[in-house]
Amino acid sequence: MLLSSLQRLEATIDIETAALLAHDTDTQDELNRRKSQSLLELARFARSEAHLTDDPATMACLQRLRSKLGRNHEVVGMHLRAMQEVADIVAARLQSTESDGTYSATFHHED
């Protein structure tokens, strides 16, 4: 049961990483829901003694999952940095627009 939960999380992380690399955010809400469900399952295992195992398949899955989470972390970080750069560009553009008087509070009407 633990192994199947880990495998579902591993598959979700694979899908999310591939989607982010393809700049496809259409499924992000569903992926977040699936990750939350996986974390809930793993939290339940952690509270029980069922997670104590020497099963080689489970240990191999945990190692793969750790590696995939590291890659996913890198890709998510890359997207966050890109979003920050876009936000900085937009903010700078807004500030420059405001500073040239375009959106000034004063209105000059010529007769």
Rank of each mutant, 00 (worst) to 15 (best):
A92K: 03
S96P: 09
L21W: 07
L3P: 04
D24K: 00
D100Q: 04
E49M: 00
T106K: 09
S38K: 01
E74Q: 14
R47P: 12
D100S: 10
M83Y: 04
Q84H: 03
S38L: 07
S5H: 10
S5V: 10
A19N: 15
E30N: 01
D88G: 06
E98F: 09
M83G: 13
E16Y: 05
R44V: 02
E41P: 05
P56H: 03
V75Y: 11
D88M: 02
S48V: 07
C61M: 03
E49T: 10
E98L: 12
I89P: 11
C61V: 02
L2W: 01
L69V: 13
D100P: 08
T102P: 00
L94N: 11
L40R: 14
Q7G: 00
H79R: 14
H51G: 04
L2G: 11
N32Q: 10
A91V: 02
L3R: 01
E85Q: 11
H108C: 01
A43T: 09
Q7E: 14
E30H: 03
R47L: 03
A19W: 04
S5D: 12
L39M: 05
A50G: 11
E49R: 12
N32H: 03
V86G: 10
G70Y: 11
A57R: 09
L52E: 14
V86I: 13
A105K: 00
C61T: 13
E41F: 01
G70S: 14
E110K: 14
V90P: 09
C61W: 09
Q37V: 05
E41H: 06
A18V: 11
E10L: 15
E49H: 03
K35P: 08
V86K: 06
H73L: 12
L65S: 00
V86W: 06
L21H: 00
